[in-house]
Design a binder for these strands. Structure first.
Lengths: 119, 119
DNA sequence: TGTTGAATTTACAAACATTTTACAACTCGA
DNA sequence: TCGAGTTGTAAAATGTTTGTAAATTCAACA
């Protein structure tokens, strides 16, 4: 009956789930209220979980910006997205300095920065 | 066997019931006095409870409007419908900004993931 | 440690969408 | 035809989203 074909297998981990067909993201069983751009951004990052996506690629795919555009729009949207991801924000969305961003699944192995190690 | 077969199973939840065969809606045991358009709109939304229905789809199915028509008629009817739904209005009829509207059952399950959890 | 370029954060306004009110046009039975 | 109820539209009010500027914080490196 349901002709609602599921072309895109949903993403799911310990805390976050993204249903690409319904264009919905659920964080700890609570639906996230994302704006279009926020969803587009999260969606793209999640589809490429674990991969680093350069700024230019994000600006190209989410905003359609080509060439060398100088804008902070991407950063601001990443911030808005992080805010809605609550405490898991920095866990999920990594900043790759000088390159772009990367979405990491909840249980992805983390790189321990030498400077962050104490004792 | 009654010739008046019931092809459409009625909708029912804590406060609202819709009998598609009789084209009647009952809110807290009180029959709603809906106009044709109001009923058509509510009916369509309820039949697709939980799903987001784009403006274009509503304008197409309830009004027969095709293409890209710019009108606020839909919004006004949603308002009239909400008014008659009383206090449950915003609970039942959600506005999906930039997309359309969605009817949510009273006990709206926050989200049901495609793959059943547990068991 | 100071310099430099990048990212973050805040605030704001422009763009865009919905809600609300009011009213005119239409429908349909008495 | 009349009139009550229904429907569509315009326009203002309200609300939301988005992009940008500017100040601040951060990271890399000589």
């Amino acid at each position: 009956m349901g002709p609602v074909s599921s072309h895109n297998p949903p993403y799911r981990d310990e805390h976050l789930a993204v249903d690409f067909d319904r264009q919905a993201a659920i964080l700890d069983d609570e639906r996230m209220l994302l704006t279009r751009k926020e969803y587009d951004l999260l969606s793209l990052l999640v589809r490429h979980a674990g991969e680093i996506i350069p700024r230019e690629a994000l600006l190209m795919q989410v905003w359609g910006y080509g060439g060398d555009i100088r804008t902070r729009t991407l950063d601001v949207h990443v911030r808005r997205l992080r805010k809605k991801l609550g405490g898991y924000a920095d866990h999920y969305i990594e900043t790759i300095f000088g390159i772009g961003y990367r979405f990491q699944p909840f249980d992805a192995p983390r790189y321990i920065h030498p400077t962050a190690v104490g004792a």
